[in-house]
Design a protein around this nucleic acid. Structure first.
Lengths: 246, 246
DNA sequence: CGTTTATTTGAGACAACTCAAGTTGCGTGG
DNA sequence: CCACGCAACTTGAGTTGTCTCAAATAAACG
């Protein structure tokens, strides 16, 4: 099944389960919600957390449903989206490890989420999370900063969609993707995620055809290379030039 | 000077000053930051607040500057904007009475703000605001919810800009404007704000020319009427139809 | 009353969209 | 193992609507 694309999946799951309580995995990430917590706070939350697993293409929660849980992504990539009045879909972002999903003070989900990859998440009951906040007011800061970062991300998306030409849009999107997955000590230029072109289109407010043609041009010009395992960034400098060309 | 457009301005200022401590004015608004506070919390904040006045077209703060103060709008309308790499300007929103400006946990301003109308604001030193949060943890909730509402607004702007055709964009913008200023017990359809078309264009990601032509069409079709004092909504039903026409 | 800023109008180019076929890749079941 | 079906991707030709550029007009301000 989904494990075919990731041989070490089962092993990883075991590792995650062992480290579940101490949040060692999340601690590795500077960014994200858990990265802003002290070890004591992490332990407090971990005590009431449940490990949730989600196969690729499965839905974690739907827009409009009651928010009974909130989540922190441990592993995998999720697509966050809203349905618009006219039936079209708007992808509002992609959730990476460390990201907090849903706002614990809202009774209903602002958006829906489903997995692009198989995903592992920490699940918290919303009421538990709220009582954490009451118990340890310092958690409020982490929550507020996290929501504020989502706000900054949303504003970046506004700037992105506002662009008229397709090439800078896609180029900037690719650069953001690269940035999110760039490791300081790594030489590889391969970002190991496969985002469907339809999702890129709905994120950037373009049609699939235009996204496809633009990506094809980048591939033809040897700026990127698209493989089954992800996107290989061959010429970051040229990609940046295109991104700036507004 | 600017009082010529609002004869009762001076009187209003006096009223505001008198009610400054109890925040009675802000209390009248359901929406906004102050509306989420208890009277005790309002008094706490009011004790350390300063009334700031700002003439029309003046700048309150600039993007990138150090955040030494945060503000709550009492009266007037402000334009919030960011500068993009290519020099273009992106209007990220308009601040109405009750809105909190700037994020007290950020060291630098994410955006700039200047007045469209003459404006009155409550000014707080950032460190004072942070110590309020420490002193009364319940304030954290109000802050988090406020930032989250900004996030929802930003996502609405994403959906707005994502539209391809000009008419629905402008129609939806006008409807939002109308909603923000609609009074429950009021019969008038006049929204007493004048937003420059250039700002609408930068908010919606279009050119001034297209905004102008679209507005002209609405006026020609007797859907709205544009006067010096503001926009008169003559046919809300038709405006809604256009807004839905994606 | 002159200067600056905002709005209005026109003609043409261009880039993304629409529609309509293909093709490829992949998981399922015979 | 191959055939099938579904979903994602690819490609082409024509349309459409906004943008661009260029100008004239109107309004705001000292």
């Amino acid at each position: 099944m989904t494990s075919s694309r990731e041989p070490a999946r089962g092993e990883l799951a075991k590792t995650l389960a062992e480290k579940s309580r101490a949040c060692d995995y999340c601690e590795l990430r500077n960014r994200g919600f858990c990265g802003r917590l002290t070890e004591a706070q992490q332990s407090l939350l971990a005590a009431k957390s449940r490990l949730a697993t989600l196969d690729a293409h499965k839905t974690l929660f739907c827009q409009g449903d009651e928010t009974d849980h909130v989540y922190v992504v441990r592993n995998g990539l999720l697509r966050l989206y809203q349905r618009l009045r006219d039936g079209r879909r708007r992808v509002i972002g992609f959730a990476k490890p460390g990201d907090l999903l849903l706002f614990p003070l809202s009774a209903h989900n602002d958006y829906g989420a489903d997995a692009l990859d198989a995903a592992y998440l920490c699940q918290f009951r919303r009421e538990d999370f709220i009582s954490f906040l009451r118990h340890d007011p310092d958690l409020w800061g982490a929550l507020a900063v996290t929501v504020h970062e989502d706000l900054l991300r949303a504003r970046r998306q506004v700037a992105l969609i506002g662009q008229r030409r397709a090439e800078p849009k896609v180029a900037q999107f690719l650069l953001t993707l690269h940035e999110s997955y760039a490791r300081p000590n790594s030489e590889t230029t391969l970002v190991p995620v496969r985002v469907p072109q339809a999702d890129i289109a709905d994120f950037l407010g373009m049609t699939v055809e235009t996204v496809n043609r633009t990506l094809a041009r980048f591939v033809r010009d040897a700026i990127i290379s698209i493989a089954k395992r992800g996107i290989d960034f061959l010429d970051l400098r040229r990609l940046k030039t295109i991104a700036e060309s507004s």
